[in-house]
Design a protein around this nucleic acid. Structure first.
Lengths: 189, 189
DNA sequence: CGATTCTTTGAAAACAGTCAATCTGTGTGG
DNA sequence: CCACACAGATTGACTGTTTTCAAAGAATCG
């Protein structure tokens, strides 16, 4: 699993072997079965995971019991609840695996301290956050501007991998529409 | 105007007078009239502004000509289009003032270099980005989970200042609903 | 095969959008 | 000081989209 992390890092930043040893040393490998939780609502999140293999989701359950998926994460993505990690308050989100998943786990604090001691790593993390922010802002935009069908078309265009790997009911939840509506849209197209 | 920035910074980070001199030196004061643009769609954004006084909005105009407000910004907020600033590509957003506004302008690059030379300032900026990310994630959540009325109630609860300072048509655009729907919701309550 | 999980379909109801007209308040110029 | 224009907010009637609820139809897995 560490090779995957190494490949990922070396594709994004110029980091020496020695530094990579340091980076590697803060991670712990972990496997999750499909449906297994990484974080449950009510728990404080003090972990962040790098996904080597598999697929996860971050979602919230509303008062009526309906799930709303905020984020999917695949290979070479990071996943955590930043809010709870920052505030140390119980999380309102759940994170679980939607496929059997291999990941490398560490804490946000350890990533921060790596960022300080290895500037190139810090730059990489900042780049990452910036891209993340941009992606999420685009999503706000899509949610505000588009009808159900347009949102689906945009997803098809920008993130087709989600459609290949997540069940349609989760795709619907991610788009903020019902399964039934999504089913009808697909049928029409 | 610089006193406002100084107050803001000293409330968030422990920074010496000398360092503050350095920080101050990269900012240029600028006044915007109501309706004046800070950024127009199609231009590359290479500026970031700290708002000392007034109120601005970041929004997109869709194919039908409808405006969608992504963000409001008030006193002690920063505003920019991170996407265009990072990619150096033309922006798809507009930023303008919805009140006469005093601001302090600089470039993202200068903030980055300050972050490197003054670690406490860098920490502050990272904290800020993290909070920003959390806020925007909550907004995704609201957009996905709530009906028009629930979104309005949440706004009333979490960001009442928007209702006090922005015309209702803009509030509606921010919530992703029409003026008319917002008007009817308010009437009913 | 049987059981679970996921997807589709239909009909009715709720919700929000559209269009057009009216109303309200504010500020400007005669 | 009044009349007018303008921007913003409201209202009503209508249309269209999406949800809801209930049922049935695939697909997957042990």
């Amino acid at each position: 699993m560490f090779e995957i992390l190494q490949q990922y890092i070396s594709s994004k930043a110029n980091i020496s072997k020695a530094d990579f040893e340091n980076i590697q040393s803060v991670f712990v490998p972990k496997k999750l079965r499909k449906k297994q939780y990484f974080l449950q609502e009510g728990d404080v999140c003090n972990r962040i995971a790098f996904i080597c293999n598999g697929c996860m989701r971050l979602y919230r359950v509303d008062a009526k019991g309906t799930e709303h998926i905020v984020q999917f994460a695949f290979e070479n993505w990071w996943i955590t609840d930043r809010e709870s990690a920052l505030t140390k308050l119980p999380s309102m989100y759940n994170i679980d695996a939607i496929e059997d998943t291999d990941m490398l786990m560490t804490t946000p604090e350890q990533l921060d301290s790596l960022s300080l001691t290895i500037p190139a790593f810090g730059d990489m993390m900042r780049q990452l956050q910036a891209k993340n922010f941009i992606a999420i802002q685009k999503r706000i935009n899509a949610t505000l501007s588009y009808s159900a069908e347009e949102k689906y078309r945009e997803l098809l265009h920008l993130q087709p991998e989600i459609l290949l790997r997540a069940p349609l009911s989760m795709v619907a939840s991610y788009l903020g529409i019902t399964r039934e509506t999504l089913s009808r849209i697909r049928n029409k197209m």
